[in-house]
């Protein structure tokens, strides 16, 4: 399960609206315990894929290191990532899967339709190795509500 407060949840969705028609991306900081990734804050990241920003995202490793350091100073870990799918469903794509390497982390995807955030889904990257990894849908708990995905259909 992904636990996130309403303002943080909305911040991710709003980011996707702001960057439309390009994909947004960012990092979720928080704590991971058992089957729960609890997000305390999100950090916006730049999308280095300026060549194809409408359907690709990439976060520079240096930026990840900076965000990881920033989290460590607050006692927080990287527990996941978020990005948007402009005018596409909030489902993981083959590219999302191929480029996912943070086992145990949550990958949040928000569908942004004509500039408005719609469905938001989260997928946990499970497995123990690259060869056995898989995405599993996980419920999102926003300010105490449990739902497999929030936002207007």
């Amino acid at each position: 399960m992904l636990k996130v407060s309403d303002p943080v949840y909305e911040a991710m969705r709003q980011h996707g609206e702001e960057t439309y028609p390009h994909e947004c991306c960012g990092v979720m900081l928080g704590r991971s315990e058992d089957a729960v990734n609890a997000v305390t804050e999100v950090v916006r990241a730049g999308n280095t894929r300026t060549d194809s920003a409408h359907n690709r995202y990439h976060i520079a490793p240096q930026e990840l290191i900076r965000i990881q350091r920033q989290g460590r100073e607050k006692g927080l870990d990287i527990v996941g990532f978020y990005h948007s799918h402009p005018d596409h469903p909030a489902q993981w794509s083959p590219t999302d899967f191929a480029e996912a390497h943070w086992l145990g982390c949550s990958y949040v995807i928000t569908a942004v339709e004509k500039g408005a955030a719609r469905q938001t889904n989260s997928f946990r990257l499970t497995g123990h190795t690259e060869e056995t990894k898989k995405f599993e849908p996980e419920p999102i708990s926003v300010t105490g509500q449990n739902t497999p995905g929030l936002g207007p259909e």
Binding site: R56, H58, F81, P89, Q91, S93, T95, D96, F97
Partner: peptide, 19 residues
């Protein structure tokens, strides 16, 4: 590394895109 993104338009034609 962390990267990804939605499919290319052509992917849909082949039914290969989960998203």
């Amino acid at each position: 590394s962390i990267a990804g993104g939605c499919c290319r338009t052509g992917d849909r034609a082949f039914g290969a895109c989960c998203c």
